[in-house]
């Protein structure tokens, strides 16, 4: 068949597009003063990362990334930020914790580049990202960590309910 466009070229274009989207959106998350805009930019970052998963052929991971992070977790973030209505940035001047955080982030970035710089791209060596494969890995090879993670989430959930419950036994609004 006469290939109109080289499929690897399409993948490469998609890779650069989604990479640029994630990086620019991630910068917006950090740089923008308005927390709502930051939250929306974080959603864009997640969508960009989902797109990167797609270029690796991990379709299931893509869908779950959108469903869980963009669709559920960030909605709650947005919800809380809107209710708090944070308008003013309380830290006008750079101060010590802030600079410390920035320094740590930069150190982490260099560390990651040093560690990950030498690795080979996994695009071809990855196991097929189908739902069946992932299910088999989760409920076979990694059943113990998987169950531990769900236990951890359950503990966190019960903890939140205990903390949020009113002590006088009345139902909260």
């Amino acid at each position: 068949m006469d290939a109109l466009i080289d499929p690897t070229l399409l993948t490469r274009i998609a890779f650069y597009f989604f990479s640029a989207l994630s990086i620019v959106a991630a910068l917006f998350v950090v740089v923008h003063r308005n927390p709502i805009v930051s939250a929306v930019a974080l959603v864009m970052t997640f969508l960009g990362v989902a797109g990167l998963y797609l270029t690796l052929g991990a379709t299931f991971l893509t869908a779950v990334q959108i469903l869980v992070y963009a669709g559920a977790i960030m909605v709650l973030f947005l919800f809380v930020i809107m209710l708090l209505n944070l308008e003013k940035d309380p830290f006008e001047e750079p101060h010590v914790p802030r600079l410390l955080g920035a320094g740590l982030a930069i150190a982490l970035l260099f560390g990651l580049v040093a560690v990950l710089g030498g690795t080979v791209a996994v695009g071809t060596s990855i196991r097929s990202g189908s739902a069946e494969e992932i299910g088999k890995i989760f409920f076979g090879e990694y059943i113990f960590p998987f169950e531990m993670a769900s236990l951890l989430l359950l503990v966190a959930m019960i903890g939140v309910i205990v903390v949020a419950r009113r002590s006088d036994g009345k139902e909260a609004l």
């Binding site: 709502i36 929306v40 959603v43 379709t59 299931f60 869908a63 779950v64 959108i66 469903l67 963009a70 669709g71 559920a72 909605v75 947005l78 919800f79 809107m82 189908s130 739902a131």
Partner: peptide, 20 residues
Amino acid sequence: SIGIILALALSSLTVYGIAI
């Protein structure tokens, strides 16, 4: 191959437009 999950994932994004 995961059409139904994608459909749910995409429809869950509608909420952003409304909230924003």
